[in-house]
Amino acid sequence: MVDLGPMFFAVAIPAVLFAGVSKGGFGGGVAFAASVFLALILTPGQAIGLMLPLLMVMDLTAVRAYWRRWDWPVARRLMLGALPGVALGALLYKVADADVVRLLIGLVALGFVAFQIARARGWLRIERRSVSPVVEYFWGGVAGLTSFISHAGGPPAAVYLLTRGLTKTTYQATTVLTFWAINAFKLVPYGALGIFSRDTLTASLILAPVAIAGIQLGVWLHRIVNERLFFALTYAFLAITGAKLIFDALT
């Protein structure tokens, strides 16, 4: 049961707004932070079940904002690669208990922060280069798997997209289109696994206007905001929250 009290909305409204801003203006790579934050007050299943309908609302809003500004061949390869990743995620979720999922969400969050710090300090360089179809579909598969577990497909997708030398807006539009499809792929398995409930769907409906507002705010901020400040704050919150989830899972 989801307690729709003041504490829930104190966490959920900023989390959903943040996810919308990320998807609408900053490539969507950190939109999964909303699920990480929600997992502090909900079970992992409730957190991802609540977020999927909201992410789909955001996707539809963002696709309209970036219509046909994407790189279709790049998006198509990621979508096709994501299908087996989503299937694997469904199998893993079926056999894992809540603490295992909580641990995985926390590890993904910390892994993402470590990846970004390594890039910023020059320890890891991702350069534009030609890659084989196997590599392209592999990253799509990883994106599908992590997206299923914690809506965290953005980071592995970024590893591939950053090699394509896309412009800021083409990168954003390609990400939006790709995860519109991946989130649609997840809808049926989420329902079959019982991840959705009446409570999570009710909460999603209540928070839908917040999701739409977040996308619109993100599209506006895409043009004017200092990206370094946005991501620096995001990484700090993710590191703290990811560590807390891992601690809870292990103890």
Rank of each mutant, 00 (worst) to 15 (best):
I149M: 09
A87T: 10
L92R: 09
I126D: 06
R102H: 06
L110V: 14
R121Y: 11
D99M: 12
F112I: 01
R125I: 12
G144K: 01
G141V: 01
R121P: 00
L92M: 13
G141R: 01
V134H: 08
Q116C: 04
R77V: 12
R125T: 13
F138Y: 09
R129S: 13
T146N: 08
V100S: 11
G111A: 10
M79T: 09
R129V: 06
V142I: 13
S147I: 00
F115L: 15
F148E: 02
T146V: 06
A109M: 10
S147A: 12
P133R: 07
F138R: 05
A143G: 07
L104V: 15
R119A: 10
R129Q: 14
G153Y: 00
A118Y: 02
R119Q: 14
H151Y: 05
E127D: 10
L92I: 15
D97W: 07
L80N: 04
S130K: 11
A118D: 03
A109K: 02
L91H: 10
L83Y: 04
V113N: 05
K94R: 14
R128E: 14
G106A: 11
R76T: 09
S132R: 10
L107Q: 02
V131D: 11
E127N: 09
L91F: 12
D97Y: 08
V134W: 12
M79C: 14
L83E: 05
L124E: 04
L124R: 10
D97S: 09
T146E: 06
A90V: 12
A90G: 05
W123L: 13
A90C: 07
L110N: 06
L110K: 07
G106Y: 06
D99T: 13
V101C: 07
V142T: 04
L92T: 14
A114D: 01
A82T: 02
A82F: 00
F148Q: 05
R76S: 07
A75L: 04
L110D: 08
Y137S: 00
Y93M: 14
L107I: 08
G144D: 00
V95E: 11
L88S: 11
